[in-house]
Every structure is written in structure tokens, then in C-alpha cells.
Design a protein around this nucleic acid. Sequence first.
RNA 1: GUGGGUGUAGCUCAGUCGGUUAGAGCAUCAGGUUGUGGUUCUGAGGGUCGUGGGUUCGAUCCCCAUCACUCACCCCA
Length: 402
Amino acid sequence: MINALRGMKDTISPTSEIYAHIIETCTKIAQNYGFSFIETPILEETALFKRSVGESSDIVGKEMYQFIDKGENDVCLRPEGTAGVVRAFIQQKFDKAGGVRRFFYHGPMFRYERPQKGRLRQFHQFGAETFGEGSVREDATIILMLKAIFESLGIGYTLEINSLGCPACMPLYKLKLVQFLETLDGLCEDCQRRKLTNPIRVLDCKNEHCKILLADAPLIVEHLCSTCKEDFATLRSILDQFNVAYVVNPKLVRGLDYYSKTAFEFVSNEIGAQSAIAGGGRYDRLVEFLDGKPTFGVGFAMGIERLMELVKMPEVKREGYYIGALCEEAKSVVYNLVIQKRETSKVLTQYEPKSLKSHLSNADKNYVKFCVCIGEDELSKGVVWVKDLESKEEKMIKLENF
RNA sequence: GUGGGUGUAGCUCAGUCGGUUAGAGCAUCAGGUUGUGGUUCUGAGGGUCGUGGGUUCGAUCCCCAUCACUCACCCCA
């Protein structure tokens, strides 16, 4: 027997209905916010992710599905969605055309990790990106949009925000942080490495000993330049104004290297250790890293599988027909009726004749509203027997009027 | 990559201190006097007890290995 690969899942009804419901809800809200759908390839050149996500990140460092294709191209399955969208944006020369553009996407992402609750090797994200808008109001808008999505889906969350600073203040802060880290003794192995590759990540270390050592670490929020400071204050005041509850987490750093200024994460405490349900922020430098003309960028991504555990589906109503034959002679009449009725309604059937009891039972299991049967009596009179499974009302209807 | 837990029917799980035909509930199918579901009653089908080796007169049970699933670390959505 051949099974699906580790960390890859089939999504089947009723779970698939929840998946579709999430996509539908997100799509509608994103459209209300002026975003348009973009679909980009799942397979991209490896260099795209190395340059955007960053070689120091674990995603690129050890989690990519990377291989050489038959044309000797170094390619990989996308581990996240932003890079491809930015690549498409630049390829379409939207950076040169200028103006503001908003895109949303959804689809599979691939990371070669050890699976656990809320973490798959092939998982699905819904995300959105705004290009060419430098105002922090866009950052706030994206958070408000996520709030609207989660409210519509009936999902509880907590929101953490932070500012990572810009090229004017971040490098100075980084120096200060490294100086501080040099004074520490006994940081974990990972942190020793991070100190050199990406010192900001040390702040995010979960190691208990490191946490204690880092208690007095300088924080980026205290070293922001005046612009970043102002923007962060504006963001907070907008969130306050619209009653979005949040906590400032000065140690929140995003796992992808391209973020600057606003960073945020939506977290749930009901889905296990992998608790982030959406994350995002600003990436004003990313377009130029990928050879485009400098263009502002903000966006987010959310993990659909993690959301699925939290979404309660609205109750479904009985819908459509089930049509069955009670005798051999009625088979073809039933079949014709089924095909004809499907032009307007949902219709289920059973090709072989069965007892009335069996048909009713099938109709009920399929949760249709009407059970329709044709037997010898109905054939001779040119009628069909129809039962409303909710009201239990039964009728004989002329074949041509059905 | 590292650690813990679990593998018995389609699903959820009992069970055998090692002993002959391995059980239940749910689900499926068929019936309950010749055409009435979501509530009952009766019956049937369905298992090489994850796989491979070892110990033993005998292993689903004990031991070893292996694989799979799962949770956690790490990382992230």
C-alpha cells in the first residue's frame, strides 16, 4: 500500500468544507479591503528564497524542498508566499509603474520539518501583500483586516506587536545588542551562532537559561529613530481607536529576515505548541533586495490548517433530492429524471432498485430535503412519490410536473 | 536532527499474569410477514493483533530491530 508522504495530508469532507469556508471568508474580506487574487508558481528558483527569506533563517538553511530539475536548474518548492508575489510584482514591472497594489494569495507551502500538532510539511497559507504604500495606516489596516477575518470565522486570539526599526535605527541597535551579548557568559549553542548570523533572534530564544541572561538586554523599542517611534505610536493609537486588544512584545522578531518596522503575530492558546495562527509585518527593503526599484511593502500570512482546528462550521440545512427506483422497470426512468433534475438542483441517487426503507435511509444519510421513489404503482400512473424528510409530508406528483 | 507515547475489525478501543474458534460499541449490508428514514430488535460480513527476527512445546502478549503515526524540543503559519 502506498501512503501519503510524512507530513502531507489528504483533506476530505467534512474537513474540506471547513477549508473552503476559510478561503471563502478570507477572499471576501480581502476583496472588501481592495486586494485582488494572485496565483504564483509553487516551484521557484532557489535563489529567490535565499535572497528574500534570508540564508540565516532555518527555513532556507535546513527546511527547503530543494532539488536540481531536468534542465539543471536549482529549484525549490516554495516555503512561504511573499517571495513569489514580490518576484511577480517585479517581473511585471509594477515597481517601475509605481502606484499602490494589493494582492492576496492562498495555496500550499512546503517545509521539510519534523511534523507535529499544527505543523505539516505541506501546509496551506492565506496571505496578502500591499506594495507602494509607506503609511503606517496600511500596517494598521492589515491588522484590522485580520481582526475582521478572525471575527467572521469565530476565532479567538491574542495579538502581539513590535517594531523592528528601519535602516536608520536598526543597525545602531544591532551594534548595541551585540556589545551586550558579548558581555554574557553561558548562552546556548544556538544563540552563540545567532550572535554572529542574526543577533536579533537571540531575543526570541526559548531556552530558560538564555531568557534569564537576556532579561536586561537592550530592546529595540527603546532605540527607535524618531520616524519609527512616531509610526509605532500611530499604529498603536489606531488599534486603540478600533478596540483591537494587543500586547507589545519587544522580543517579538519574525523568523524571516526581510521584515522591518512593524511586526505582528496573532496567537491562539488552543492549538498546541505551534500557536501562531498569523504573522506579518512591513518589508520596505525586500523589493530592492530582489532587484526591483525600492518599493514599500507590508503583508501577512496565516496558516489555514491551524485555523481549521478553531473554526466551527455553521449548521448546514437539508438540501436537494434523492431519487431511487423500487423495481427493475423504473431504473431508466429514475436515471433520466436524475440527470434532468440536476440542471437545477443537487440530486443524489442509487443505480440499483432497493426497498423503500433502504432508499429513505440513504436519503437521510445524504442529508437531502426530499426523497423521491418510483415503483410499479408510480410507473403505471405516470407519477413520482415525494417525501419531505423534514415535514414528513408525502405527495404524488405527475412526472411531467416534477 | 533529538526525546517521549502509541500501533488489535472501516472507526474508537477492550483483552490475553504466554495456551486451542481474539471481543465490544459505532459504521456497513440483509431481514423484522410481501412500499416508510433519522428510535429500536435479529442476523451477517469484516482481523496474517504494524513488519522482521529472537526466546519458548507454544507469542497478539516477553525481548531486539525496523517502520508508521503522534506529541514535545527546535523553528514557524
